[in-house]
Design a binder for these strands. Structure first.
Lengths: 188, 188
DNA sequence: TACCAAAGTGACACAGGTGTCAATCATATC
DNA sequence: GATATGATTGACACCTGTGTCACTTTGGTA
């Protein structure tokens, strides 16, 4: 029918993610993405009207992927098993969670972007429902400290997985240490 | 002698800090700072040749202030007392620590900025000396878990104080919960 | 092999930020 | 009141990124 595309949607999203991680929302430009893909800027505008649409659509893609994974948390019985699963999932692609925080920087410049942002908000609420069930289970089983408010429990988990591994501690050691520190802190 | 200034250096630094927090390094512009101060852009260039100089000099100002506070850690005897002091200091102006992370985005565009960045690196190392002594003390006193590597201990503390308080938990409750969770985790 | 639809390009006008500088303004001091 | 000095401003030229669009390229199909 027509010419072959120089990049797939997946490759484009991957580049979007890397560019966001490297330069943050404000340093993100279509030019950088185009350069990275060895493609002209105009080409990208064939698929996305502006960078806000590209970014929000990439975010929807990531968020939907994450929710599919997260749903499996209910396959696990007991809080301890769910905790282990959740941490594995989050640690696996913690980069995604860094990107998620940038949502607040995206201005709703038009109807399309506005819709995407609203849909993202919905997905975010879905995510919180699963996580809240998880926290409730922990409370029921008497595993989570009563003195720590719900808002801090989840904030704590998401913040902890983003600790930069500056000293390049090996991945397995890193993961088990992170879990241990979340469970029992750093004091003996 | 001459006309009165429309803003003090302190006020300028304060605005710089707020603008950085709100827009990140890449969204930071001299225009925004000037607007905030109700002053013309050109006026700010009388005191700083470019935004990199403004930002790095502001960072030096904050870092020096922080180090003066941090030095007092040695007035406290025993790891528990030092831990309590350190967390109070960091939680007090945790915004400053968010800004510190932006150092890596500042390009060394000229000699002056390069010097500032080098000086910042030195101060950062000074800071780490104090913190490493603190960690060593915790190890000596057998309070810190052996299984958790040094690199994670400090990363953990700095990351934890940046947890966003989305649910507006009252400050005192927040602080004590943060300390508790760092000390003993969220499991019973 | 000629066609044509989708993929891709580069040039254009525009928007906003940068850094400079001559001109203007405010005020302490004489 | 005149004056000198430092503060402040706004206009200028430049740069980078944006979004658009007419045009070119590619390759499957009639």
């Amino acid at each position: 029918m027509a010419r072959e595309r120089k990049f797939t949607k997946k490759k484009l999203y991957e580049t979007t993610k890397n560019t966001l991680l490297q330069h943050n929302y404000n340093g993100f430009t279509i030019s950088k993405v185009a350069d990275e893909l060895n493609v002209s800027r105009g080409n990208i505008y064939k698929y996305f009207d502006n960078k806000e649409e590209l970014i929000t659509e990439y975010m929807l893609y990531e968020m939907e992927k994450f929710l599919v994974e997260l749903k499996d948390i209910n396959k696990y019985r007991g809080f301890h098993a769910q905790f282990d699963f959740l941490l594995d999932v989050i640690l696996e692609d913690n980069e995604t969670h860094q990107v998620r925080g940038m949502v607040f920087h995206v201005p709703a410049i038009n109807r399309q972007v506005k819709n995407n942002l609203e849909r993202l908000k919905e997905l975010h609420q879905d995510m919180y429902k699963y996580l809240q069930d998880f926290v409730n289970l922990g409370r029921q089983e008497g595993i989570l400290r009563d003195s720590i408010p719900d808002g801090l429990i989840l904030g704590f988990i998401f913040q902890t997985v983003d600790i930069p591994n500056h000293f390049n501690i090996p991945e397995e050691k890193w993961k088990t240490s992170i879990k241990e520190i979340i469970r029992h802190g750093m004091f003996t």
